[in-house]
Every structure is written in structure tokens, then in C-alpha cells.
């Protein structure tokens, strides 16, 4: 059984490092164990094409019986590969919980901000407040929050919010930014009780539709 590691192995035979040129019959045999098919094509190259490229990319392989036979030789392996991809690996379902428990063990409180109560010592972590404000921004159609930082603004419990957004371009940006600002101020007052006195918003990227393939099973939309 091969137990060696790529880092401790001797380097590959030098001929394996040669450039991989085209599919021409003039190719030298670059890989140990490679062979030329009766049509002149290299088996390694035919397999690469069969696995990597669109079926009709090369007119030769479409019509050549030798190439086709060689490509079909991988059918069993390919079917098993598809099955392997479809099977859930053991331990999958508990893994996310394990990871998040480990992550939460490490999380420090980070910066603390005063809640809007001048008489009592009430504080909230920046990460908890930022999360609520990002969620409020996400509620504006066509906008999603990226970064969100909160800092003390001058005296007392005043807070400044600095947010970056990604936004769709189907409507004027100033209008959308205005909606996001209102959503942030509303959430800061209603959900948190944070005295936000300044909101700086910059749009940093275009929001593309996600997921890229509709019907991939991920719910789209949402928004409170």
C-alpha cells in the first residue's frame, strides 16, 4: 500500500514535467505508461479531453472509434465517481455543530458599545449590534450589507455606524442607500436601543443574483 506523502517523495521522473502540448500525434510519450492509440492520439490526452472538455470540442474524437473506445474505458470509474459525490461522507451531520461549538469557544467579546440608557451601565458587543444592523440593511430589496463597524461618536451614548454595501444596479443607488440608512436608524432605535447619530454608507460592489444556478436548492429572497 502506498503510504508516501507528496512532500517526502522523490520528484517525478523528469519527462513527466515536460510541457503538455496539444493533441497532435507527434507528441512524445510524456507520462510513464502512456500509449498511442491506433489513430495516433495519446491515451492520456484522450482521457483528459473526455473528462475535461465539451463532447463535441474536437471533431476527431467525435468520429474516431479508437478514441471513443478509450474514453468509454473510464465509464465504470466515472459512474463510481458520481456515486461517491452523491454519498454523504460519514460524520457530516454532526460536523457543523462540532465546528461551531469549537468556534464559539474562541470568540472573545470584542469591542463594547453603550446602549442608549444614560443612567445605567448597559452595553452591547459590536458584533451583536452589527449583526442586527446588517440584517436591517439586508431587508432592503436589492441591497446586502458587507462590513459594519460601530464606534462611539463623541460624548455619551452616541454611536456612528460605518457600513459597506453591495447593491443591485436596477435602481438609482442614492435611493437605495437612503432606504438602507432609514432601515439602519429604525433598527438601531427599535431592535437595539442604540443612539445612532451618524450613518456612513458606501457601496463597494454590485450585487449579482445568487445562487448562480436557480433551483440549486438554496432559498432566495427573504427579508423582514
Amino acid at each position: 500500500m502506498a503510504l508516501d506523502d507528496p512532500h517526502t517523495r522523490p520528484p517525478e521522473p523528469p519527462e513527466a514535467d515536460g510541457p503538455r502540448t496539444g493533441s497532435a500525434a507527434a507528441d512524445v510519450l510524456p507520462f510513464p505508461g502512456d500509449q498511442a492509440l491506433p489513430c495516433g492520439r495519446l491515451l492520456s490526452r484522450v482521457w483528459e479531453q473526455a473528462q475535461d472538455e465539451a463532447p463535441a470540442a474536437d471533431p476527431h474524437t467525435v468520429s474516431c472509434p479508437h478514441c471513443r473506445e478509450a474514453a468509454e474505458g473510464l465509464a465504470t470509474v466515472n459512474a463510481a465517481t458520481r456515486a461517491l459525490r452523491a454519498v454523504d461522507p460519514p460524520g457530516l451531520h454532526a460536523l457543523a455543530d462540532r465546528v461551531m461549538n469549537a468556534v464559539r469557544t474562541e470568540v472573545g467579546l470584542g469591542r463594547l458599545l453603550p446602549l442608549a440608557d444614560p443612567d445605567r451601565d448597559l452595553r452591547i458587543t459590536e458584533s451583536a449590534a452589527a449583526k442586527a444592523l446588517r440584517q436591517a440593511a439586508d431587508g432592503v430589496p436589492g441591497a446586502r450589507a458587507a462590513t459594519c463597524r460601530l464606534t462611539s461618536a463623541g460624548e455619551g451614548t452616541d454611536i456612528r455606524v460605518t457600513m459597506t454595501l453591495v447593491a443591485m444596479l436596477d435602481r438609482p443607488l442614492p435611493e437605495r442607500v437612503h432606504q438602507v440608512r432609514r432601515a439602519i436608524l429604525h433598527s438601531a432605535g427599535q431592535d437595539l436601543g442604540l443612539a445612532v447619530t451618524a450613518v456612513d454608507i458606501s457601496v463597494v460592489d454590485v450585487l449579482e443574483p445568487w445562487p448562480p444556478h436557480p433551483g440549486a436548492g438554496i432559498r432566495t429572497g427573504g427579508g423582514a
Binding site: 467579546l109 446602549l115 440608557d117 445605567r120 451601565d121 448597559l122 452595553r123 452591547i124 458587543t125 451583536a128
Partner: peptide, 30 residues
């Protein structure tokens, strides 16, 4: 947080054998 502040303060004071000042800080972590 305000309610927590009040109830914690009251509960702690009631537990003290003699009157002592009690200050409370409430931190919302998540």
C-alpha cells in the same frame, strides 16, 4: 438589558446581610 439590570440589582441586595451599595453592568453579548 434594563430589566436585567433592575432585577439583578434587587436580587443581590436582598441577599446581602447588611445594606451595601451594589452596581450592576449588563453586557449583551449576542
Amino acid at each position: 438589558a434594563r430589566t436585567v439590570h433592575g432585577r439583578v440589582r434587587t436580587a443581590v441586595i436582598s441577599r446581602l446581610a447588611a445594606p451595601e451599595p451594589v452596581t450592576v453592568t449588563v453586557t449583551v453579548t449576542r
